[in-house]
């Protein structure tokens, strides 16, 4: 397979071109995954850009993105392939005359059965195979990006079933034999870490742990995605979000929520952050009532309000309301 990238730096630039701010670590591991033809398992809290990474890699390489969303009860027929019974049935009906013709000259029952058996390949062929995401990714003549999203939601045995695909890039279909990938896809798996994945699965993957980004990196993300927001205000807003992540909340604001908030500030034509504005727009960042209350309690005062500002970032204070 022609490798998609020539160096980690090229990945970083390509992803940046797609609007994805990418740390050296992400670039290096993505490069390794491409070089070693190994799936990349990405873990981390919700909303740090795990799925996004697969999307931008697909966009940057111009490959098709095939996505398999996992959920409890997902099985082979939904993920891999299914015989199209209805179509098979329809064809048998339509081809009835032809079948009669084939069978007309047959002398005995056994001979008829043999003749039908000779034709059965028609019915169990690729024509009637409904390709689900995994098979589609393997059989695609063009290289693709395969995203297996939230693998931790699928059952443990589905994981086991993935092993063959992830290590050898092949699938066994009983009626057709083993189908091997024409071009190996770039595979990304994401997990929210709601349960421990099996060792066997992990062994076959490279591992990338994505955490919430550092201050500067998140500012870069906001600058890239919401360039309309004033530079100083961006920094202030991101600092505030980073402060929120240090609190004990039920759900911490993710990057996508930071971006939503930044857009909100743009729409509201905000020039500076003050407690009234923050308190009004806080529900963009926090999605639990308890979290909202807790943060609103400790909001005041803000730099926009006056010189007595103490700031939400002073570390010692975190425990006061918890």
């Amino acid at each position: 397979m022609p490798d998609a990238f020539s160096s980690p730096n090229q990945i970083r630039d390509a992803l940046h071109g797609q609007g994805y701010v990418c740390s050296p670590e992400i670039a290096t591991i993505t490069y390794l995954s491409d070089q070693l033809d190994k799936p990349l398992l990405i873990e981390g809290p919700a909303g740090v850009g795990k799925t996004e990474l697969a999307k931008v890699v697909a966009a940057a390489t111009g490959r098709e993105l095939i996505r398999l969303q996992c959920y409890e009860g997902l099985d082979e027929t939904k993920a891999l392939y299914e015989w199209e019974y209805a179509k098979q049935l329809l064809y048998t009906q339509l081809l009835r005359d032809k079948l009669q013709e084939v069978l007309a000259s047959a002398g005995s029952l056994a001979e008829s059965a043999d003749r039908i058996a000779a034709e059965e390949n028609v019915f169990f062929s690729m024509r009637f195979l409904l390709q689900r995401p995994l098979l589609k990714a393997l059989l695609s003549p063009e290289p693709v990006v395969l995203l297996i999203d939230e693998i931790d939601r699928a059952d443990a045995e589905f994981e086991a079933f993935l092993l063959e695909i992830l290590s050898d890039f092949q699938i066994s279909v009983p009626e057709l034999g083993t189908l091997t990938a024409r071009v190996q896809p770039l595979v990304f798996l994401t997990s929210n870490n709601t349960r421990e994945l099996s060792e066997a699965l992990k062994r076959r993957c490279l591992y990338l742990f994505l955490n919430y980004p550092e201050l500067e990196q998140e500012i870069a993300v906001v600058n890239l995605k919401v360039p309309e927001l004033d530079g100083a205000l961006t920094r202030q807003a991101v600092e505030m979000v980073q402060g929120l992540r240090n609190l004990d909340l039920r759900k911490h604001p993710s990057i996508s929520e930071t971006l939503d908030w930044a857009r909100t500030l743009v729409i509201l034509n905000a020039e500076r952050l003050d407690s009234g504005l923050v308190s009004d727009t806080l529900n963009v960042l926090l999605k639990h009532e308890r979290d909202l209350k807790r943060v609103q309690q400790r909001l005041e005062p803000m730099p926009g309000d006056g010189p007595e500002y103490q700031g939400p970032e002073d570390e010692e204070d975190h425990t006061r309301y918890l």
């Binding site: 873990e43 490279l206 591992y207």
Partner: peptide
């Protein structure tokens, strides 16, 4: 790190 370590 990405090849040897598979758990946070």
């Amino acid at each position: 790190r990405s090849t040897l370590i598979k758990r946070t």
